[in-house]
């Protein structure tokens, strides 16, 4: 039996939530981090495509809170709570944060991947949400997809194929 699954897309510097049979997908994560939260009882999940570590460096007029780790994680939590998720049940997974290009000099911009990962972890700690699995780092891009019913996170990369965490 083939079930029609709805796919919810999350763009760069974007976030969204879904439930039950839906899948939430974001494509082409490089230094960006795809962070997911999941409530196993309510079968609710959310995903943020975080681009930059901290909103402190923002110079934009109207802040896109989905873009920065420190603002995206609380917003994702609020969106899930609004749908009836229970905070103490939420678990997090994340993928991405790679360093696509290796440079000898290695200034801060080039280290953006690891910095995004660190910031996401700090944001989760501050909210007391456990990080139960991650596939971060490396020097390759990833496309990720979370099944909202099971919380399984599928990770696809060019060289390593598909794995799930």
């Amino acid at each position: 039996m083939i079930e029609e699954q709805s796919i919810i897309k999350v763009g760069m510097a974007d976030l969204n939530v879904g439930s039950q049979e839906s899948l939430i997908r974001t494509t082409g994560l490089g230094s960006c981090v795809g962070l997911t939260l999941f409530d196993p009882v309510k079968k609710l999940a959310g995903m943020a495509h975080v681009m930059l570590p901290s909103s402190d460096i923002a110079r934009e007029g109207q802040l896109n809170i989905a873009k920065y780790a420190d603002t995206a994680v609380p917003e994702l939590l609020n969106r899930l709570l609004a749908l009836g998720a229970v905070r103490s049940r939420l678990v997090a997974k994340m993928a991405g944060g790679s360093q696509m290009f290796a440079f000898a000099g290695g200034n801060d911009t080039m280290r953006i991947g690891p910095r995004n990962v660190e910031s996401c972890k700090l944001a989760l700690e501050a909210l007391h949400i456990p990080l139960i699995a991650e596939d971060t780092g490396g020097n390759f891009g990833r496309t990720i997809e979370i099944a909202c019913g099971t919380g399984v996170l599928f990770i696809r990369s060019v060289q390593k194929g598909i794995r799930e965490i």
Partner: peptide, 27 residues
């Protein structure tokens, strides 16, 4: 120019690197 680096990967993952400076200002 800095020393060039070559990557073979998903376009989104690669191009995001060039958008970080703009990312601080908008979308």
């Amino acid at each position: 120019p800095t020393v060039p680096a070559l990557a073979m990967d998903m376009a989104g993952a690669i191009l995001a690197y060039g958008l970080l400076q703009f990312g601080q200002m908008g979308d």
